[in-house]
Simulated scan of single mutants.
Amino acid sequence: MRTTLARPALGAGLYLLSAGTWLLVLGAGLLSALGLVLLSTLLIFLLERRHRLGRERLRLGLRRTSLQLEQAQRDATLGNWEYDQGFAWSPGAQRILGCGAQDSLEGLLNRLHPADRNAVQRGLDALLLQGAALLVNARLNLPSDQAPVWLALRGEAQPDGRSAGTVQDITAQKRDEEALRNSELRFRQLFEQTPRIAVQGYDRQRRVIYWNRASEELYGYTVDQAMGRHLEELIIPPAMRDQVVADINNWMIGGPAIPASELTLQRRDGTPVTVFSSHLVLRNLHNQLELYCVDIDFSALKSARDALRQSENRCRELQERFERRAVEGQSGHGGPV
């Protein structure tokens, strides 16, 4: 008999035996007693079997959920922990830390880089003594010839007086952040050392977060004067401000990009300046959008074009005047002698 039926059948059999004996002792009719006992025995069997099947389904569901959780933690390089006079580490946490299932606070600190131990100690003291949430990053204490392994420790106090949380390997995230930071540094150094190309950076609210030396020379604002101020109040002429703000806000929420074009903006003293302006949107280390503008001063070119246009107009006027006089001269020679 299958395991799911053995216990219900045994319970029903014991009930059948005891109930039948009891009814016979009381002198009940054999057939009526037997019918009553069999009916109640079948009912007990079915109820017990349903209860057993429900418990088995629950056990299998919990097991399946546990396996899925373990797989998710392996994929995320994540583990759990509980603290009650000592740490109890989940299998995932043991893999990350290279420790056993149980550990002391001192044992955890010894596994961390000496430079990070004080920060972890302060965070754990605040959690265990004051109930403050724990969120601290630290490196494992590894030989100097090995690449650093970064951990994120998170935790919260529980109502029963214990503390619980997670530990996660965030080495890949730290490596990506460092690469992005280095890339941003090279980007800024490049434009700091490039003359006559003005570069400005703005956050989602259009506030200045970057202003290179060429921008100082082109627009007349120093870095200190520009930082934190809005784009439209610095270099956008009043008649253009509403449209520029609308175009930037629309781009930031997924609308069309602002095309590169020739624009007439304004300097600090209010005088116009013609630039060829290109725009791009980047994401920073915190996954926040930033807008960068690259402006090339076209003022000299515009002046040259205006002068050329004026020269062409004067040449055209002289040519037209010469042609009129020539026609008038021919008309005078063609009259009677």
Score class of each variant (00 low, 15 high):
A260Y: 09
N313W: 11
E178G: 04
L39F: 11
L58A: 00
N313S: 09
P237I: 14
G220C: 07
A119K: 12
A257E: 15
E82N: 14
N137W: 12
G100V: 12
R74S: 04
A300D: 11
C315K: 13
T41N: 03
V25H: 14
A198V: 09
G161N: 14
R229E: 05
L23C: 07
L10K: 14
T4M: 11
S90Q: 14
E312W: 11
Q68F: 06
L58E: 06
M252G: 05
G107W: 05
R154I: 07
P91Q: 14
W89Q: 12
A304S: 09
L109H: 10
Q200G: 05
A76T: 05
T171K: 03
L124S: 06
R314Q: 03
F322E: 15
D116F: 10
D125P: 03
G27T: 07
Q68V: 07
T166W: 07
L282D: 01
G332R: 13
E312I: 13
G92K: 02
L23D: 01
D116I: 06
A239Y: 10
D103Y: 10
A28G: 05
P256R: 08
E156S: 06
S144F: 09
A72N: 10
Q158K: 01
L105D: 05
D306H: 08
T194M: 13
N141D: 08
S331I: 01
L280K: 14
E323R: 10
A304T: 04
A147Y: 12
V208D: 06
E290A: 06
P238W: 08
A138H: 10
W251I: 04
F187P: 02
T171P: 13
S331Y: 02
R207E: 12
N250K: 11
L109I: 15
G79T: 02
W22D: 05
I236H: 13
Q94L: 07
E328D: 14
S303T: 11
S163N: 12
A19K: 11
Q200T: 15
T41M: 03
R324G: 02
N250L: 14
Q193N: 09
L69M: 13
S18K: 03
D203Y: 10
S163M: 07
V281W: 04
L263V: 10
S163P: 11
L47N: 09
S66W: 03
T41S: 02
R139S: 00
M1C: 15
D203L: 01
L280N: 15
H279V: 07
A300W: 10
R59W: 10
G13Y: 13
R2Y: 08
D295I: 04
L265A: 01
L16E: 09
Y202C: 00
G254C: 06
L24G: 05
L16M: 12
I236E: 02
E192K: 13
E56M: 15
L109T: 15
G165H: 08
A132H: 15
G131D: 01
I235C: 05
D116N: 12
S261I: 10
L42P: 02
E184L: 00
V244F: 01
G255Q: 09
N284M: 05
T65I: 04
W251M: 01
P114D: 15
D247Y: 08
R52H: 05
T77Q: 09
L308N: 00
L140R: 11
N110D: 15
